[in-house]
Design a binder for these strands. Structure first.
Lengths: 349, 349
DNA sequence: CGGCCCTGAGAAAACCTTTTCCCAACCCGC
DNA sequence: GCGGGTTGGGAAAAGGTTTTCTCAGGGCCG
């Protein structure tokens, strides 16, 4: 039973093709193509007439057809296994932002830690003829569960362990740690403890080494870092270890934490003990996870890894690789940035 | 000066085409295509020979060419303006997971709140002939800064305000609030306060209304909800308002919070006042942001909006729209789920 | 006035796959 | 032996664009 007052379908008419534009302008498709791309030779009038016709008809070239011919799809794949963490999102946004302006779109590929899923996504990308792939992870020292080593298209690794000989971008963790410790030193702090995550993370060692190096360079006593978990709970425990012993003289006057959650735990635990932050002890975190850093009391000074810049750089690096520019393989470290809030206080008077 | 010991290029050889497979198998491309797709008629031997040849050569059909012909690209666009929040990530992962198995890839489009960026991305999607678009936001009651209303391809809205007449999926905030309040009631709590976010958010009212409704249905006294910000700080303030007045008798024995950060603030503030959670007061949050919910002391019972399920459903809904199945327009609400931890205690003895 | 070059534009191939139509050969029954 | 049906497989068009080649006409120089 046909309905007689059906609303117009949402507009099923197919997109305008170049052929239609050419017909409407009274030229051949070849000429139309050249007119729109600024190629070939023709009178200014012809070119303008075609352009105007295309505009009037709302012509937009079919990317699929273009890609098929040019062997460039203006598309890249973004692999990640960090779908619940907070690292990948700014990174992905950075990639996307860097590329959208160049007309390149990004396929989101969530591979978790699942080999099958990784395989599936990589094959889908290859079939769709992406121009390149960016691999991203939640850990700088771990591989994604996929083999990207013989892919015939360029690959850039961002915030994850690259294949040997590939180009990788990571944050400069040691530099970030330096930033923090040197900030403490500038403020006159001298007994700077370090509380960080599990020893199984490479960044833990990189940051700890930088912390120790800066202390040594400044002729200060060096102790062992306290390694535990990436959690608030561990921050509490660490405070117990550091400030549990009697004798205020042995207490640190600054704590550099491996991430913001630990720092949060440290600050809370210090307050519960009646130790003032920043007056008695300064605290610096890592990651600059704003929602945590701004909720601590006082707000937390923290090292920002500039992940969206990292993503942006990764996108641009991939693009130049796609354009055939050879890139120096190896790992490029991007600087961190210290975001100063109120957990370190000012210089001593 | 040509180098004489150059390492072999990473393998610049182009992918195997169907034509090559056909030639290798000694048949025409038509036959090869039919053999691989299970179409047409030919002897079992021919079919197997072609398949074997394709396998041996590592043939993979060019999606671009297929898409061009079939007028289906097996790609969809995912628009979001929540690149730093925690809502979009599980949602995006859900979409991606639901689609990858169907061979559909997802374009990530970060539009922030930028009209230009939105326009850019939508045009790129259209040019790339996506089969459909999923629009996602960080707020259920706000539009994305793009017009998706006359697009000739299907659009599904997930966790954002849909256009009238479009299909939208959101979480059932009222249902979620019910879950929380009824849980309190089952545990014997009777004086249940509600602390939530800014009145400018629609969800604040939806949840508050459900809270009030459940109380009324159970013949309990109803007060005004405390509306403020989505922050820990507001949780602290709210505790001051609720528990500042003398007279322990007037105090609530449960607080239902509009999100986990508020709940965190509430729990911390209660502890600072020496009020025990859950013994004296039960607390429930919203969002089930694990990293927060598990860090509160005690760990926080919270309402989970099942965002990855929401994403999955959005993906499937879009797919069936793309397949031409008409979908009932309007907003579909997906149930929430209460994740019980330790901030509510057991039933009273 | 003839040859040459330049200009403006079109025809056709190419990209890779799918699908429709077609054809030759073979088998069967009469 | 011949018409009709079936079987196995190929030719060609289609999808939308880009690019190379070709070509006709006109202007210029000698």
């Amino acid at each position: 039973m046909p309905s007689n007052a059906e609303p117009a379908p949402v507009s099923a008419k197919p997109p305008v093709t170049l052929r239609e534009v050419a017909a409407a302008a009274g030229v051949s498709v070849a000429t139309a193509s050249k007119a729109l791309n600024g190629q070939g030779r023709m009178t200014v009038e012809t070119r303008e007439r075609i352009r105007e016709t295309a505009r009037r008809l709302g012509f937009r070239p079919n990317s699929l057809a273009q890609s098929l011919l040019r062997k460039r799809s203006f598309t890249v794949g973004l692999l990640t296994n960090d779908t619940y963490g907070r690292f990948s999102l700014p990174l992905m946004a950075g990639v996307s932002d860097a590329l959208v302006d160049k007309g390149v779109s990004v396929f989101l590929c969530n591979v978790e830690d699942d080999q099958r899923l990784g395989q599936l996504h990589v094959e889908a990308m290859l079939d769709k003829r992406v121009d390149g792939i960016i691999a991203t992870g939640k850990r700088i020292d771990r591989h994604l569960p996929v083999d990207l080593s013989n892919l015939r298209i360029p690959v850039v690794y961002a915030f994850t362990q690259p294949d040997p000989g590939a180009v990788g971008l990571v944050s400069d963790d040691a530099g970030g740690a330096r930033l923090a410790v040197e900030h403490f030193l500038r403020l006159g702090r001298r007994r700077i403890a370090h509380v960080s995550g599990p020893a199984s993370f490479a960044v833990v060692h990189a940051r700890a080494k930088a912390w120790r190096d800066v202390l040594k360079e400044n002729g200060l006593a060096v102790s062992e870092p306290l390694l535990g978990a990436w959690s608030e709970g561990w921050g509490h425990e660490a405070v117990e270890k550091l400030f549990g012993k009697a004798g205020r003289d042995g207490w640190p006057d600054a704590v550099f934490c491996g991430n913001d959650q630990i720092a949060r735990g440290v600050i809370d635990a210090l307050r519960e003990r009646g130790i003032r932050v920043p007056d008695d002890v300064g605290v610096i975190g890592f990651d600059n996870w704003e929602i945590v850093a701004e909720a601590t009391r006082p707000p937390l000074t923290s090292v920002d890894m500039n992940l969206s810049t990292l993503g942006r750089e990764a996108g641009l690096a991939l693009l130049s690789l796609v354009d055939g520019q050879p890139a120096a393989p190896g790992i490029r470290k991007l600087p961190c940035r210290l975001v100063v809030r109120q957990s370190c206080g000012g210089p001593p008077e």
